[in-house]
Amino acid sequence: MNLLLRLLLHLLRHLAPLAAVAIGAGIGAAADARAVEGTAGGTAGAMPNADWMSYRDAYRTMIRFEKYGKPKQLIQSHFRVVPKEEGASLDGVRLSLASPSGSLNLLLDGAGRAVFPFLKSAFDDNARLQLNRSGNRYTMQQAISIIPRADGIYEAAELHAACEQALAFLRDIGRPGMRDKKCVGVRFAYPRQVEDPALSVRGGDPGHAVLPVEYAPAFAGDAGPVFKTVTYRFKPRTDKLQEQVHAQQRPLAITAEFE
């Protein structure tokens, strides 16, 4: 069975909604050698070429989440393409998995994320993850995501627990600078064309408060693109609060905030 058919079968079985919440983790491209490069959420093996990277290198990074044995039921992992230029867009950017036996486009969501295919055939064929852009304008990364709720109701304590799970994973993989960080909140990101995200906090003091909307990248530290974002900051003793965040629309991404 050739690579293309294997990829099609894999994606049909495992393709999941890409509107997950996320924390970026770098597999950035380096100019001349492999390196370890971090963003707001991880580490990665860099490649000398800016428009492609080895599937084997990406696999070795992505598989660490699959093998991670500590609590992770509130978070998930995706592969991500990120602009390196401030305000840059992902419009028209395409990602494909290519090998001598075939190629397949990997669907990117609005935040540049794709479901990563774990395929022995692609590993054996030394396949490439290839962008349809040349030059040093983009990087390819791992994104650790908080799993969204279908009902749009997020308990404050659960959001805090999800943030802590993400932080624990980033520390486990050796993300530089994470040892002294702490979780301070989460950022909800929406496409700019959304008229009003209308996120509100209920059960706290005051009992019902609408959170303000800002324009910022979905992931802390990104150069772009810019989304409508809403940040919920944790209160002291969040685990004891009965606060809830109500989201009327499903977010494109939710990312952890660390300080």
Score class of each variant (00 low, 15 high):
V201F: 04
V115T: 10
R250L: 12
L167Q: 06
L90Q: 09
A31R: 08
T231V: 12
S200V: 15
H246M: 11
S101Q: 11
R56E: 08
L3N: 07
P117F: 13
V201L: 13
A150C: 07
Y138N: 01
M178T: 14
G110Q: 02
F234E: 00
A150D: 15
D109K: 04
A157F: 02
G24N: 13
A114G: 05
G26S: 14
L18R: 03
G69H: 06
V93F: 05
P117C: 09
Q141T: 10
S121M: 06
L107C: 11
N2M: 08
P206N: 00
A198C: 14
R34E: 09
S77C: 10
N126P: 03
Q248I: 06
P83E: 00
A44M: 12
E214F: 00
L12K: 10
P176T: 06
I63M: 11
L90W: 08
Q244D: 09
E243F: 07
V36I: 15
L8P: 00
N2V: 06
M47S: 14
S121A: 14
E86F: 03
V245R: 03
Q141F: 04
D205A: 14
R202N: 12
A35T: 08
Y138D: 11
R202G: 11
E243D: 13
R94S: 04
P212T: 11
R175I: 04
L211R: 01
P191V: 05
D151A: 04
L11A: 07
A198K: 04
K84L: 15
L12D: 04
R128S: 11
A98D: 11
A16V: 09
K240C: 15
Q142G: 13
I147V: 10
E155V: 11
I75G: 08
P71E: 14
L131C: 08
T43K: 01
P83K: 03
V36S: 10
G87T: 09
A220N: 00
E86L: 09
L97F: 01
L108V: 10
R60H: 02
I75E: 00
A33C: 06
